Simulated scan of single mutants.
Amino acid sequence: MDKQAHNIATVGRILIAAIFIMSGLGKIGAPAGTQAHIAAVGLPFPVLGYVVAVATEVGGGLLLLVGFRTRIVAIWLAAFTIAAAVFFHNHFADQNTMIHFLKNLMITGGLLQIAAFGATRFSLDALRRARIA
């Protein structure tokens, strides 16, 4: 990958990470509302779901941001994003819900690109590879 492609891919990784970090921080600020929403869609154990969602979004977002274990993190976040689309954005008669469903699919597409190609040279993964070599 040339320098320009690394720069563009790095910006893309940072932007996708920011979505997860901001969403997770929003959940931290509204635990009762998030847990109620989880329960409202019929998922069991809303407190556990809340903890998993916050850990996934904040933790996974930060790991993606710095590019640590990038491929594994991207796959986890992609699975989480698809699950969120299926469980929370499945009322397709509502245009807003359909937009959120499609947004989740688009984010998943970006995450799968990251999983396929890995972190760029601007990542902790690249630093780890350089130390090993």
Rank of each mutant, 00 (worst) to 15 (best):
M98S: 02
M106F: 11
A36V: 00
I72Q: 11
A40I: 01
F87Y: 13
G61F: 00
F68V: 11
G61H: 02
F87R: 11
F101P: 07
A40E: 14
E57D: 14
F87S: 14
G49M: 12
Y50M: 01
K27D: 10
T34Y: 04
V73P: 01
V86G: 04
F80L: 06
P44D: 06
L48W: 10
H100W: 09
A53P: 09
W76A: 12
G42H: 08
A30R: 15
F80W: 12
G49L: 09
F92H: 14
G67S: 10
N96G: 05
A78P: 00
V47H: 11
T70M: 03
A83R: 04
G59E: 00
A93G: 13
G61R: 00
A79E: 06
L63S: 04
I72H: 01
H91V: 08
I28V: 15
V58N: 02
P31W: 14
A55E: 08
K103N: 02
H91T: 08
I38V: 12
A74C: 06
G59A: 05
L43C: 07
H91I: 03
A78E: 00
N96P: 04
A55D: 09
V47Y: 13
K103S: 05
A32L: 12
G42F: 08
L62H: 06
M106E: 11
V86H: 12
I82S: 09
F88Y: 14
L43I: 01
V47I: 10
I82G: 07
A53R: 03
G49S: 13
F101M: 12
F101S: 03
W76D: 02
F68S: 08
P31R: 09
E57C: 07
M22R: 10
R71G: 05
A39F: 09
Q95M: 08
Y50A: 04
I28C: 10
T97E: 15
V54G: 06
H91W: 02
S23G: 15
H37W: 14
F101C: 03
V52A: 14
I107L: 14
P31Y: 11
P31M: 11
L63E: 01
P31N: 12
P31F: 09
W76L: 15
L62W: 07
A74Y: 07
T56D: 06
H37T: 11
L105P: 02
A32Q: 15
